[in-house]
């Protein structure tokens, strides 16, 4: 599943994920009718609007062996929150989808392993932001660090307070922008203090929010999704950066 944010804002995350999965020996399909997992409505309490979206996702992905998502929060939505939306037959279908849903980096370290890379190490100081849903709902913590080490030869320079939220929170960031901005600043200040030039993460929501704030503050940080780094030395601009 390509998340709605990757689809709209950062297609290279989707293509990078496909390349990684193919390198790990998978046959990859992105169903044409997929759109989004329904988190915006769900997290904002519009549960009845989220239910038919979830049903459409369940139907769309039923024919596949695995559903792999380059996002901890969307994977968490399918794995943990869909089953809670339903009772009866739909709950069974939601549970079946939950059982085969994986976040990308965990899938690549536990199910379909990536072969050793044939390219040179990435020459960059990298820090990593753990998205909260990935960290707490999907158990994603050591996997991206391990992959960055094995695939890119990069040792992550850790952020202080790396288990604290960056302040994105879906609609929260627009409904309470001032508080959200303060939280982004804390995260970005830690990133700058880490000495890293690249801030990587597994969730585009967090990354777009942080990149937008970094741009506003004029910080010199390249912000990228981890799939872009793992798939090969990325050449295009980082998130929110221009082409000049």
């Amino acid at each position: 599943m390509v998340t709605c944010l990757a689809d709209l804002m950062r297609p290279s995350v989707g293509f990078s994920a496909i390349r990684l999965l193919e390198r790990a020996g998978c046959r990859v399909t992105v169903p044409e009718q997929q759109t989004c997992c329904g988190q915006p409505a769900y997290n904002s309490g519009e549960i009845d609007a989220a239910v038919p979206v979830a049903q459409a996702v369940i139907e769309t992905f039923e024919p596949f062996d695995y559903v792999v998502i380059p996002s901890g929060s969307c994977a968490g939505m399918l794995s943990h929150h869909y089953p809670a939306l339903f009772e009866g037959e739909w709950r069974e279908r939601a549970l079946a989808l939950s059982a085969k849903t994986w976040e990308l980096t965990r899938f690549l370290t536990e199910v379909a392993l990536l072969p050793a890379p044939k390219r040179a190490a990435l020459e960059a100081a990298v820090t990593y932001h753990d998205g909260c849903a990935g960290l707490r709902e999907m158990g994603i913590q050591q996997q991206p660090r391990q992959l960055l080490q094995e695939q890119c030869g990069v040792q992550v320079q850790e952020l202080t307070e790396n288990q604290v939220c960056c302040g994105f929170g879906g609609t929260f960031c627009a409904r309470m922008p001032e508080i959200s901005g303060k939280m982004a600043d804390d995260k970005l200040n830690h990133a700058v203090a880490s000495g890293a030039k690249v801030l990587a993460g597994g969730d585009l929501g967090c990354l777009l929010h942080l990149a937008g704030r970094a741009k506003r503050r004029g910080l010199d940080l390249e912000i990228r999704h981890i799939a872009e780094l793992l798939a090969g030395n990325p050449k295009g601009p980082g998130i929110g950066e221009g082409r000049q």
Binding site: V30, C173, P177, A211, G212
Partner: peptide
Amino acid sequence: GWTSQRDFPAPEAGGTFM
């Protein structure tokens, strides 16, 4: 709400993933 605190990152050139 978004742009009061942050810039709005432009989508990557080349159109949507789909």
